[in-house]
Amino acid sequence: METTEKNQLSGGSFIIENDTTRQIFTPEDFSEEQLMMKAAVKEFIDREVWPHKERFEKKDYELTKTLMEKAGELGFLGISVPEEYGGLGMGFVSAMLVCDYISGATGSLSTAFGAHTGIGILPITLYGTEEQKQKYLPKLSSGEWFGCYCLTEPGAGSDANSGKTKAILSADGSHYKITGQKMWISNAGFASLMIVFARIEDDKNITGFLVPYDPKNGIKLGDEENKLGIHSSSTRQVFFTDTKVPTENILGER
């Protein structure tokens, strides 16, 4: 586990606070563990990504998925996930080193990686129940499963809480049925677990649900979007029609 003895600066505090040089983090402050991670991800990018650079401009979604699987095998997908849930349990600096090298190579892989490790994994790490963490984080950390974050809708973008997707509780209280449409969903084409936001009854705020992808459970994917860039990053609409989700799959508090 990473540790630091410095009381480091946070955000833009350097503008309004009196700081000393001891509070400023520089590359010379990298620990041996962080330097090893830096070398490992650089080797991965040099070996697996740069030789295939042109393929990313040809909507090669399978290449992106394959490289994500390899990143999982090397531990990069679970770098911020605690060790007890199958991750490496490393800190913010190591996570940023990995993101730095991956994002500098190709936007397609960077988008897939960021969507998975950020909005695909962190909500479960931070807000999931113990059972949810035990069930999903090991698969997401290893690359056995990939995640996506279903929030945006045709009429709800920056004002995400105005989404129209509904979640209706069953008569016996055992599950919800989700119905609605999501769009611009990164990783939708190969995601195994979807974090889906829907409104329960007339709640003021929408609620998150953990929804395993199953086309037999009322989940349909739209075609891949024709984007100006990040051509090998999967981006699709997702349609839910009476998709059954157990009540224990609510993420966080209602």
Rank of each mutant, 00 (worst) to 15 (best):
T3N: 13
T4E: 12
T4Y: 09
Q8N: 13
L9F: 08
G12I: 14
E17H: 13
D19T: 13
T20W: 06
Q23W: 01
I24D: 08
E33K: 14
M37A: 13
M37C: 10
K38T: 07
K38S: 12
A39K: 13
A39E: 14
A40T: 01
K42C: 12
E43W: 04
E43P: 00
E43M: 11
D46Y: 10
R47C: 06
V49A: 09
W50M: 12
R55T: 10
F56S: 05
Y61D: 02
E62R: 09
E62W: 00
L63I: 10
K65F: 13
T66F: 11
M68Q: 05
K70H: 11
K70E: 12
A71T: 00
G72M: 05
I79D: 04
I79A: 01
V81E: 07
V81N: 03
V81D: 01
G86N: 06
G91L: 06
L97W: 01
L97E: 08
C99L: 12
D100C: 12
I102S: 04
I102G: 06
S103D: 14
G104I: 07
G104Q: 11
S108F: 04
S110H: 11
A112E: 00
F113L: 06
A115M: 14
G118R: 09
G118I: 06
I119V: 15
I121L: 03
I124F: 05
I124N: 01
I124S: 10
T125R: 07
T125W: 02
E131M: 10
E131P: 07
K133H: 09
K135Q: 13
P138Y: 07
K139Q: 11
L140S: 00
S142L: 10
S142K: 13
G143T: 00
G143C: 05
E144M: 03
G147I: 05
G147T: 03
Y149I: 03
C150N: 07
T152P: 04
E153Q: 14
E153W: 00
D159W: 15
A160R: 14
N161I: 10
G163Q: 08
G163V: 05
K164P: 00
K164H: 08
K166S: 08
S170V: 05
D172P: 07
G173Q: 05
K177T: 07
G180W: 01
K182V: 07
M183V: 05
W184S: 03
N187R: 08
M194N: 04
M194S: 03
M194Y: 01
F197K: 04
A198H: 03
R199C: 03
R199A: 06
I200S: 02
I200P: 02
E201D: 15
D202F: 01
D203L: 14
K204N: 12
K204S: 14
I206H: 04
G208M: 06
F209P: 00
V211L: 08
P212I: 03
K216N: 13
N217R: 05
N217I: 01
I219A: 04
K220M: 11
L221R: 02
G222H: 09
E225G: 03
K227G: 02
L228S: 15
I230D: 06
H231K: 15
F239D: 02
T243R: 00
T247R: 07
I250G: 04
I250Y: 04
G252T: 04
